[in-house]
Design a protein around this nucleic acid. Sequence first.
DNA 1: AATCTTAACGACCGATCGGTCTTATTGTGT
DNA 2: ACACAATAAGACCGATCGGTCGTTAAGATT
Lengths: 207, 207
Amino acid sequence: MADGRKVRGQRSREAILESAVALASVDGLGGLTLGRLAEAAGVSKSGFFAHWRDKEQLQLEAVEWARRQWVEHVVTPALAVPKGVRRVLALHEARLAFYEEGVLPGGCFFFVAQVEFDDRPGPVKDRVAEAMNDWLGYLEKSVQEAVDRGELRADPAQLAYEIEALGEAVVTHSRLRDRPQAFSHARRAVLDRLRALSPDPSLLPED
Amino acid sequence: MADGRKVRGQRSREAILESAVALASVDGLGGLTLGRLAEAAGVSKSGFFAHWRDKEQLQLEAVEWARRQWVEHVVTPALAVPKGVRRVLALHEARLAFYEEGVLPGGCFFFVAQVEFDDRPGPVKDRVAEAMNDWLGYLEKSVQEAVDRGELRADPAQLAYEIEALGEAVVTHSRLRDRPQAFSHARRAVLDRLRALSPDPSLLPED
DNA sequence: AATCTTAACGACCGATCGGTCTTATTGTGT
DNA sequence: ACACAATAAGACCGATCGGTCGTTAAGATT
């Protein structure tokens, strides 16, 4: 891989993927046109086909790219917090921080991709569903760890659904309604829920 | 308005709007193309311009149409239930029934429209935001009525956010993951939440 | 019956879409 | 130096997009 040509290629490949995920977080993977993508990434439209056979191949790889980005910004930071109820809360907070900091201009790639592809069967839907399954599976596993430690009394799948729902809703509510209030509601909702389910609320922050 | 021409015009106008809302619930208001819409509604593409100046005018009226549909299927049925915590639950259940019965092929017009337009300023975004404000305002008012009757101890805006989030998430989760489980989680989440906030849980169903 | 109004149609327009093809540039191996 | 490989560019293609235009069919008015 010391080939200067491939290195350069990899660089623009990544630049395109980076732009693709950002643009898709706003207009969706379908609303992403090759022309605007090429312009945003600073390459020509045709040079794009040196890296992907067609638009769908790019979409599939964009999902992978967004997944890595999610792991980096949300999952990894929460690993610094001890397993149990505190890590569950940390995952929720890391998600909100991801949204609040505006890492992606549209807020959340996967939220938009889900809504866009939940009714459109095909490889992209499958890949999006797979990524969501992995994430929700991890969220659920983290809840299970808290249950195992006696820090929560809860059905992990049920609580994972709730945390996911309360977190996702911030994306639209912060944009269409009151932004600070949306984040405040999402924070309080999960914090209150965890407090109610926790035999030892001292593990959770005051307010 | 006994004019046969206008009557006929009104009929196809409504047929188009009905198709528009249904198609938009799947592909969004942007993904809705005039060609496919004309075909679905059984009219010619150009005949469409007898009713609306351009696509945006249709989109705006489609929002109104979807709003009326929501009131008819979700708000009105809940009015049969007495004010208070039971009506709050009835609103949630009516929403889930709306999704579960497949009234719209895509599940929920407003959920898709929100995600699509939250980053696209303009008249359509404003209209969607207005409709969502009205709905969430009504949800909040219903919670307030329950609080006033001593049937709930809650911050109305906070609880309205939670119910909305837990309900909306069903749309994608029922399509991308486990359908019955999604509905079950959404039901249990709100029921448990209301129980925890209610001084008199006997007002709520057993399980 | 003649006239006017309204809905609806088919043909067509420029722009943009995803995608192909040919060519130029850049770097590698001999 | 020369052949080869890989990235990227520009011109171009058929299809489809939102939208216009001229016309026809049906019903109302006189």
